[in-house]
Amino acid sequence: MADLDFSAHRQAVHLTDEDIARHKRFVGLEAADLPRIAAVRPIVMERVDELTTMFFDFLRGLDVATPLFRRGDLLDEAKRMKREHLIAMVGGVYDRAYVELQLELGLLYSKVGLDTRVFPGAFYHLMNTVGAIVMANAGDDPQKAFQNFMAVKKIGFLDIGLMIDIMAAEREQTISIQQEAIRELSTPVLQIRDGLLILPIIGTLDSFRAKQLTDSLLRAIRANRAKMVVMDITGVAAVDSRVANHLIQTVAASRLMGATVIVTGLSGDVAQALVSLGVDLGTLNTVGDLQGGLELAERRLGYRIARQADSSLETA
């Protein structure tokens, strides 16, 4: 299950070669930086375990990072990947594979529900430590050591830029998943009495959604042995010939299943415009508002609606 989520996620977060090149331009990474990074490589490689441990010690101190430390297996995996990332940072090759590594690490973090926003801080801390080590090993040319460190720092900023892109893409994906969920939720079929369903339609009604809606209505009619359906279209954003056609077809299909549909919320103006278009509304049972539709449906089902005399209301 989790693996499935993983790959779905990964597909959404996709950085092209052009994206990577753009990030490199942003941080001003140039050919001259590569030998400088190479000079730092042995210093970092010698302390790669120490640096990895430090990075996670820093995270451990943050409340928000607790979920990661509760998952021993994933923590080990994260440490392994972070170590690999540190090696790659001074590796001199910043291509798709480099970005992939970071993506995987990011996915792992999001798997434990770790807020990605803690990383710029942890990362900054890491870079400071690397800087201190590089300067401590400067020997007799501190200016050169500083230049070398500045080149490595560009990779640090490159990473942060990539991280932001990944976060933005993830968020966009979340939003589109939520929108889809809202669309689904906005076509609930509710049983309000024995044999009576209510279907409030909200938003736009494209062909795909119209089909979805018809399917779920027919399923509900069968499951509830419904005889009457009140379909309220007050919330439909744009009623035109195509929407009217969907409604007419849904009504016809429901009838075949043995249920009568009452359409409510069709305003007089809209009905008039549809008739001018040439739409035959003759097969539609329409009632002005939802309340009226429900009352009619209940009467047809044999319920007797009576207002209860409530004396307490009058004397209050």
Binding site: A238, S267, D269, A273, S276
Partner: peptide, 17 residues
């Protein structure tokens, strides 16, 4: 006003669709 607004909106809807 009134129904004319719905008429114009419906015509726009058709050609936009």
């Amino acid at each position: 006003q009134g129904s004319d607004l719905t008429i114009i909106a419906t015509a726009i809807s058709e050609i936009a669709r």
